[in-house]
Deep mutational scan, measured.
Amino acid sequence: MQNSHSGVNQLGGVFVNGRPLPDSTRQKIVELAHSGARPCDISRILQVSNGCVSKILGRYYETGSIRPRAIGGSKPRVATPEVVSKIAQYKRECPSIFAWEIRDRLLSEGVCTNDNIPSVSSINRVLRNLASEKQQMGADGMYDKLRMLNGQTGSWGTRPGWYPGTSVPGQPTQDGCQQQEGGGENTNSISSNGEDSDEAQMRLQLKRKLQRNRTSFTQEQIEALEKEFERTHYPDVFARERLAAKIDLPEARIQVWFSNRRAKWRREEKLRNQRRQASNTPSHIPISSSFSTSVYQPIPQPTTPVSSFTSGSMLGRTDTALTNTYSALPPMPSFTMANNLPMQPPVPSQTSSYSCMLPTSPSVNGRSYDTYTPPHMQTHMNSQPMGTSGTTSTGLISPGVSVPVQVPGSEPDMSQYWPRLQ
């Protein structure tokens, strides 16, 4: 039975679970980093996980050691009161100082060594604690504590007292930064006198190289990059290397530039699409467009005044059976039934097929058609009795279509119309 579990990581490298990497692998990681390889490249070359490479390099940059820390136990506290007071002093002298600059000053002034120097995250935590204590304490208590930490007896009751030896409130920041720059020169002199001055200088240079600022491109470089971006948004590694040799930039910087440029292009394309949609959409909808001609068919113009009344309900007709019959029939052209047409008796099958359309009241044959006459024609229609054979009435077949029909004066039988409509 094995005491430890061995495995293979996602890159194909072998590791022992819970145990640190061998010293030979750690040394190779540092050597590759000094030669300029990126952590992701080191991870692929040595088949070590990216997190492990970053952790080893980060500890090497901070402490200069590649040895693993002790497994188990607690780390001794490195942010001692003396170190905290120095950090507060540096922050007062130059409020814009960075944590890694404070760390360098602690090393250069001999406050800490490589073994007990606090990390950048520890210094940031100390600065946050100082800021929170400043908010919790009152103004007087804060000034007393700062005077105690600074070891001075001057008056701290006013704002300019934060910067000793100065009279203009805006000047101390520059003086403090100048003092810090002077301390940086002392850093070089002190570290050069040490035993491991060369190694420390190499480590600091490598650290500065990794902690780079934003790349500033010249106009020629920007023009070359934009020209390549117009050709393709995704250049391959050969195109990037050719462009890197042409404009004297690292291939990694060119790759990052193209990634950022593609993101910018997507944002601009989104804005262009929004403007295009806004320009195509009308600002207001016309009133006429809300009524579609496919839904509402136009009603033909009436030929006679009587045809303006298109349904039985508008003429005072309360018989719903006839109203439904007229509205359900398709529109037909106007025609006239003459008196000489043969009077065919209704076929029983045809009569039964339209039995649902006729009223059940037996008085329908005896009703006159003056009910369908509009009010303004009552006088004219009353002067001509319906009993004469020459009287013409208008029957409504569908809305908007008038059918003048000659009705025999002897017997106005409704059943004569249905064979004609089939």
Results as ranks from 00 to 15, higher is better:
residue 116 N to Y: 09
residue 129 N to H: 13
residue 56 I to H: 05
residue 94 C to S: 13
residue 77 R to M: 03
residue 90 Y to T: 12
residue 103 R to M: 04
residue 38 R to Y: 04
residue 150 N to V: 06
residue 112 C to F: 04
residue 41 D to Y: 05
residue 109 E to A: 12
residue 122 S to R: 02
residue 121 S to Q: 09
residue 31 E to Y: 10
residue 10 Q to L: 07
residue 112 C to N: 07
residue 92 R to A: 10
residue 122 S to I: 04
residue 140 D to I: 12
residue 48 V to S: 01
residue 93 E to M: 10
residue 71 I to K: 15
residue 139 A to F: 10
residue 143 Y to M: 13
residue 3 N to G: 12
residue 113 T to E: 14
residue 35 S to I: 12
residue 144 D to H: 11
residue 109 E to T: 12
residue 132 S to C: 12
residue 20 P to V: 02
residue 15 F to Y: 13
residue 12 G to M: 03
residue 64 G to M: 01
residue 113 T to K: 13
residue 26 R to W: 01
residue 47 Q to W: 01
residue 86 K to T: 08
residue 80 T to H: 05
residue 147 R to T: 13
residue 49 S to H: 00
residue 43 S to I: 01
residue 115 D to W: 08
residue 104 D to A: 13
residue 131 A to P: 06
residue 106 L to T: 04
residue 96 S to N: 13
residue 31 E to Q: 13
residue 2 Q to T: 13
residue 98 F to D: 00
residue 135 Q to H: 10
residue 51 G to R: 03
residue 14 V to N: 10
residue 144 D to E: 13
residue 84 V to Q: 07
residue 4 S to P: 14
residue 133 E to R: 14
residue 84 V to M: 06
residue 107 L to F: 12
residue 132 S to G: 10
residue 142 M to H: 14
residue 98 F to L: 06
residue 146 L to H: 15
residue 83 V to I: 06
residue 83 V to H: 04
residue 20 P to Q: 01
residue 130 L to N: 11
residue 116 N to C: 09
residue 109 E to G: 11
residue 11 L to S: 03
residue 60 Y to W: 07
residue 43 S to P: 02
residue 10 Q to E: 06
residue 141 G to S: 14
residue 122 S to P: 02
residue 88 A to N: 13
residue 86 K to A: 15
residue 43 S to E: 00
residue 9 N to D: 03
residue 5 H to I: 09
residue 53 V to L: 00
residue 32 L to V: 01
residue 91 K to Y: 03
residue 83 V to N: 08
residue 82 E to C: 08
residue 100 W to V: 06
residue 83 V to Q: 01
residue 95 P to Q: 13
residue 54 S to P: 00
residue 112 C to H: 05
residue 104 D to F: 15
residue 60 Y to T: 06
residue 93 E to A: 08
residue 140 D to S: 11
residue 63 T to K: 04
residue 26 R to H: 00
residue 79 A to S: 14
residue 107 L to Y: 14
residue 139 A to K: 13
residue 130 L to W: 10
residue 6 S to I: 15
residue 21 L to T: 05
residue 58 G to T: 15
residue 38 R to E: 04
residue 131 A to S: 08
residue 83 V to L: 03
residue 126 V to K: 05
residue 113 T to N: 10
residue 144 D to A: 10
residue 103 R to F: 01
residue 74 S to A: 08
residue 3 N to L: 10
residue 65 S to I: 06
residue 111 V to T: 10
residue 27 Q to W: 13
residue 15 F to L: 03
residue 34 H to P: 02
residue 48 V to Q: 00
residue 69 R to M: 09
residue 82 E to P: 14
residue 53 V to M: 00
residue 138 G to H: 13
residue 78 V to I: 06
residue 72 G to E: 03
residue 55 K to G: 05
residue 28 K to Y: 05
residue 45 I to Y: 11
residue 6 S to M: 15
residue 83 V to G: 02
residue 89 Q to P: 00
residue 21 L to N: 00
residue 79 A to Q: 04
residue 33 A to K: 09
residue 80 T to E: 00
residue 142 M to W: 13
residue 14 V to Q: 11
residue 136 Q to T: 12
residue 146 L to P: 11
residue 107 L to K: 15
residue 26 R to F: 00
residue 21 L to A: 05
residue 111 V to L: 08
residue 31 E to L: 08
residue 52 C to L: 00
residue 128 R to G: 02
residue 140 D to G: 10
residue 59 R to T: 05
residue 140 D to K: 12
residue 65 S to C: 14
residue 41 D to P: 00
residue 104 D to N: 13
residue 141 G to I: 14
residue 65 S to F: 04
residue 90 Y to P: 02
residue 68 P to C: 03
residue 65 S to P: 05
residue 127 L to I: 13
residue 12 G to Q: 03
residue 30 V to L: 05
residue 91 K to R: 05
residue 27 Q to H: 11
residue 150 N to D: 14
residue 100 W to T: 07
residue 150 N to R: 09
residue 11 L to P: 00
residue 29 I to H: 04
residue 55 K to V: 07
residue 4 S to W: 10
residue 26 R to L: 01
residue 15 F to N: 01
residue 135 Q to R: 12
residue 146 L to I: 13
residue 128 R to I: 01
residue 61 Y to F: 07
residue 79 A to E: 01
residue 126 V to N: 07
residue 127 L to K: 15
residue 101 E to A: 10
residue 36 G to R: 07
residue 114 N to I: 09
residue 57 L to K: 02
residue 36 G to P: 02
residue 134 K to R: 11
residue 75 K to E: 03
residue 114 N to Q: 11
residue 59 R to Y: 06
residue 98 F to G: 05
residue 145 K to N: 11
residue 79 A to V: 07
residue 38 R to T: 04
residue 144 D to I: 09
residue 123 I to S: 01
residue 120 V to P: 15
residue 149 L to K: 14
residue 137 M to W: 11
residue 60 Y to D: 00
residue 7 G to F: 07
residue 42 I to D: 02
residue 15 F to G: 01
residue 115 D to S: 14
residue 29 I to L: 05
residue 68 P to Q: 02
residue 103 R to P: 03
residue 96 S to V: 11
residue 102 I to M: 14
residue 8 V to I: 10
residue 140 D to P: 11
residue 116 N to S: 08
residue 74 S to F: 01
residue 127 L to Y: 13
residue 33 A to V: 07
residue 42 I to F: 01
residue 76 P to S: 03
residue 41 D to W: 04
residue 39 P to F: 04
residue 103 R to H: 07
residue 93 E to V: 07
residue 31 E to F: 06
residue 11 L to G: 02
residue 17 N to P: 15
residue 26 R to E: 01
residue 47 Q to S: 08
residue 24 S to R: 12
residue 92 R to E: 12
residue 128 R to S: 05
residue 38 R to K: 07
residue 59 R to N: 05
residue 21 L to R: 00
residue 145 K to D: 13
residue 116 N to V: 09
residue 28 K to T: 07
residue 72 G to K: 06
residue 130 L to R: 14
residue 64 G to E: 03
residue 143 Y to K: 11
residue 2 Q to K: 15
residue 45 I to L: 10
residue 43 S to W: 01
residue 38 R to W: 03
residue 103 R to A: 07
residue 136 Q to N: 14
residue 77 R to K: 10
residue 129 N to K: 15
residue 84 V to D: 03
residue 133 E to D: 11
residue 121 S to F: 02
residue 29 I to S: 02
residue 63 T to Q: 05
residue 117 I to S: 12
residue 103 R to Q: 09
residue 10 Q to D: 04
residue 21 L to V: 02
residue 68 P to L: 00
residue 7 G to I: 07
residue 124 N to Y: 11
residue 118 P to K: 02
residue 30 V to H: 02
residue 99 A to M: 04
residue 123 I to T: 05
residue 81 P to F: 06
residue 22 P to I: 07
residue 52 C to W: 00
residue 110 G to C: 12
residue 40 C to Q: 05
residue 63 T to E: 08
residue 73 G to H: 05
residue 126 V to C: 09
residue 36 G to F: 03
residue 135 Q to D: 10
residue 50 N to M: 11
